[in-house]
Amino acid sequence: MKPMLEELKTGKILLSDGAMGTELQRRGLPSGACPEEFNVSHSEIVAEIHQSYIDAGSDIIQSNTFGANRARLKLHGFENRVEEFCTAAVNNIKRCGSSRIYIAGSIGPIGEILEPLGELKLTDAYDIFSEQAKALAAAGADVLFIETMMAAEEIEIAIKASKENTNLPVSASMTFELGKAGLRTMWGVDVPQAVQKITEAGADIIGSNCGKGFDEMIQIIAEMRLLTNKPILAQSNAGIPEWVHGISVYHETPEMIGEKVVKLLELGANIIGGCCGTGPEHIRMMREIINNR
């Protein structure tokens, strides 16, 4: 298998996977439990979810490590288990035994506000991200996926910590929402600012993930493609969740998003996949669309 960036250079579209959180919930992750701890205590469930995405045709599988940083794990009293959870998470992908997939180490936001507006020191944020990035790299990840970021300073630190402490390619994506001021993150970052910041910080892949659904994602990617020649990643939520009979249900079904996925590819997305609410069926449908191009 070629390194991911080389593969992307040939023009190949890579298919990532769908949600982990909502899939864990369907399999009994209790409300409020620590999803990253499941890598150790319920590794067979985590591996089963990875396998379902491999079977659906994913080229990239993301580790269950979105919140596996010291600050977030501390809420559950697990702050000293970053390395353990990251290693177990990568191993849960490896044990599926597929030789044709890339393992992406997922890195999410720290969940605190950076100084000067908040309490989190820039140097502490750097150390927190470095610890996670190093652990994922040591465990055998092929690429790091920094995702769901909303603040420009935080994504910058996450990218630098990843690039300076590992030799892995790095993808960095932010979450936008369409409002009266156009597409913005909750911190007010627009698409041009995001592209500039992510590029300057040195990421290899630029993207957007999560959000309100595929229609907004199409607008985001259209704007992004005009601003960068780098590979673009697009991993949308399956719409906005609704609560039905005790579980959150997303309404963008695989059938509904077919044309939208075609559009994303036409616009120049290089890596596609799903975020919250997408499952193996969404990924299978994307596989078919990619294969039929």
């Binding site: 507006l117 409002g179 009266k180 913005r184 993150t185 909750m186 911190w187 007010g188």
Partner: peptide
């Protein structure tokens, strides 16, 4: 609420 300002401005 109207997306004229964002989290940082509110915090300030």
């Amino acid at each position: 609420r109207d997306n004229i300002i964002f989290v940082p401005q509110v915090l300030i």
